[in-house]
């Protein structure tokens, strides 16, 4: 059982309310860093001094936040109205168990049972504004005693290795995979340069934490550790698989927000090839990661993204390959140990 992934995915940290995850990570890394701090937005920034071989600083980003829900109203029957935080397919919400507010009140995103639907109704998806979270309250006052407007709600999915050592299911692999790998880097032997770890907030609502973190830390280069949607379910003949679960670390070349630094992309693929770490080039095109915000901070920062492919992203049940996760951590570690100032155009 990967205890790190279990702890991190079971913690709750919807965008804007990442405190529980932040405190957990702080405890996981505090003894292994030279200093740490929390900035105004809630980013956890930590510095791990290097051996001093190269006078540069490299930022590693992993966002702490996960998608979730925000309570917007309590109706007269004690049902909770909510809006979504981050990107959702509304159809993934109905019938799911959630935990609401700091007291983690259990609720269910309710839906009329199929027995009670007219044929025309069950042919069209229910919109999120017609859904309610049911916490079993008998009326509005009873509900208001347990939760309040502005409380966040998150999914409830215990971490489980459904094929021991190989396949795991949990909520929030996006992006606790990246957080876990970054914790491992921090606990490893020192790198030839100073490592700046940024566990960032509010990625799912627009890369907000990472831009601030990059501005404050002003690194010479950056890598972003992520969990990217695997699109490898059955589909039409010979269309692009994007990336597939179990086929190795996903390396980005271009997405909606970036063209990744070609030197760092080449460094990642070369390092992976040299060490026999499986990797796949993620299908260029859509999607976006914190690299978009980091790359454009200050006078520009060479940056690239590597990710674990995860199925069913932004649902309560994501699935990853634990081998992909291990390979992400290995590749990140090796790429850092092999990184030189010359690769990113610096003298020294």
């Amino acid at each position: 059982m990967n205890e790190l992934l279990k702890q991190l995915t079971e913690a709750v940290g919807v965008s804007g309310a990442e405190k529980e995850v932040r405190l957990l990570i702080r405890d996981l890394i505090a003894d292994h860093v030279d200093k740490w701090s929390v900035d105004a937005l809630g980013n956890l920034l930590a510095t791990k001094r290097g051996t001093g071989k190269y006078p540069m600083r490299v930022l590693i980003d992993a966002h702490m936040d996960e998608v979730g829900l925000l309570i917007t109203d309590i109706d007269s029957q004690g049902m909770l109205k909510f809006s979504t935080v981050g990107g959702f397919d509304d159809r993934a919400l109905l019938g799911k168990v959630v935990q609401v507010g700091p007291r983690k009140i259990t609720g269910v995103i309710g839906a009329r049972a199929v027995h009670l639907l007219k044929p025309a109704e069950y042919r069209k998806p229910v919109k999120v504004d017609a859904m309610r979270i049911d916490i079993g309250a008998k009326n509005k006052d009873a509900a208001a005693g347990k939760v309040k407007i502005g409380d966040y709600a998150a999914f409830v999915t215990p971490y489980e290795e459904i094929v021991p050592g190989r396949a795991a299911v949990a909520k929030a692999f996006d992006n606790r995979c990246g957080c876990a790998a970054l914790v491992e880097l921090i606990r490893a032997d020192p790198y030839p340069f100073d490592l700046v770890a940024a566990f960032t907030v509010q990625e799912e609502v627009g890369l907000r934490g990472a831009g601030v973190a990059a501005y404050a830390t002003k690194p010479d280069a950056a890598f972003v550790l992520e969990c990217t949607p695997a699109y490898d379910q059955p589909n039409d003949d010979d269309v692009s698989p994007n990336v597939s679960m179990g086929q190795g670390v996903s390396i980005y070349v271009m997405d909606r927000g970036t063209i990744q630094d070609p030197r760092l992309v080449a460094h990642l693929t070369r390092t992976a090839s040299d060490l026999g770490i499986p990797y796949q080039i993620r299908q260029p095109g859509g999607g976006g990661t914190n690299t978009a915000a980091i790359q454009r901070a200050h006078t520009g920062i060479p940056a690239a993204t590597m990710a674990v492919p995860g199925r069913y992203a932004h649902t309560p049940s994501m699935m990853i390959s634990l081998e992909d996760y291990t390979n992400l951590a290995r590749l990140a570690d090796a790429a850092l140990r092999e990184l030189t100032p010359k690769i990113i155009g610096l003298s020294g």
Partner: peptide, 12 residues
């Protein structure tokens, strides 16, 4: 792809 280069150059 979004006037990205001029942004970092202008920041400098």
């Amino acid at each position: 792809v979004g006037t990205r280069g001029a942004e970092t150059a202008a920041n400098r």
